[in-house]
Design a protein around this nucleic acid. Structure first.
Lengths: 152, 152
DNA sequence: TATATATGAAAGTCAAAGATAGTCAAAATC
DNA sequence: GATTTTGACTATCTTTGACTTTCATATATA
């Protein structure tokens, strides 16, 4: 069965596209539209519209409250990559690595094929043999080294 | 009696044929269809749908989770890559990896940027922390997984 | 009038319950 | 002896709901 969260995510992304990068939604309204509990909207926003993925979220409670989601602009791909690389920690899980990579592809900072290469090089499929703290450290190192190579 | 794993393997392959190279299955569903334990599906995938055999596997847990299996394109320019991948050993030094990669770029099987990514991911700069002989094993694994990803 | 308080309308938090898939090693089979 | 089958245990992701916080406005009070 399709995940409700994915459907809501797509819906919101489409809204953002149609409105040139910024939307304002009402949590309860959206929840009742999708017949889910309001907190699921929070879940979708917390997991899918994060800073890492290039979104900026603000909200206000009380009467007339709302949630505003803004898609961050990427003008200079090189700068963007450099910025991400330097803000990246020394350890990274497969999950976060994938989020970063998908984002690069979304923003057309790298091609889809390059995205596949990055994912292939950082997946647990190949790093699984390494024990747990080391694995994420090496993954971060591989990811950063690859991204840096693209800046040359 | 025929081996259950072989039957499941055939079943999955047929599915892949019918769907143009990519399928998404649910582990529990498939297991209950074949009246086997779920982990047997993992066994089949781990032993039969490997990189060496030209498959690319991803998965996701949790509600609405799934396992996605892609069959790599064995025709076309990939043929050469595929051949190399399956003939490559389980362990490879940095120098040998570089020779391979340079050849791929020379023969225009991959782009220069892709070559840079491959080198960045397999260099001792990032894998140096891993002791010999594990280092060369992981390098081979990364290299093969990356090349396979390009065939998808 | 100016300020304090009450009320209702949002959104936020967090943890439990549910739904999948992964791992690993013992047991069974070939 | 190697491969396959099984199952107990683990990890990860999603859904749900009870409870909390914040804000705007209406109402009461000094």
């Amino acid at each position: 069965m399709a995940r409700m969260s994915d459907i809501i995510e797509e819906f919101i992304k489409q809204l953002i596209n149609e409105t040139d990068g910024v939307i304002e939604i009402q949590r309860n309204e959206l929840a009742s539209y999708f017949k889910c509990v309001p907190s699921q909207i929070n879940y979708v926003i917390d997991t899918r519209f994060t800073t890492e993925r290039g979104y900026y979220v603000e909200s206000r409670r009380g009467g007339g409250g709302h949630i505003r989601i803004k898609r961050v602009n990427v003008d200079r791909p090189g700068n963007y990559l450099m910025h991400i690389v330097s803000s990246m920690g020394d350890s990274i899980s497969q999950q976060s690595a994938e989020v970063f990579i998908n984002n690069f592809v979304d923003y057309e900072v790298i091609s889809e094929r390059e995205g596949l290469l990055l994912k292939a090089a950082t997946s647990d499929k190949v790093l699984g043999g390494i024990g747990i703290p080391d694995r994420d450290i090496i993954r971060a190192s591989i990811l950063k080294n690859m991204l840096t190579a693209l800046l040359v």
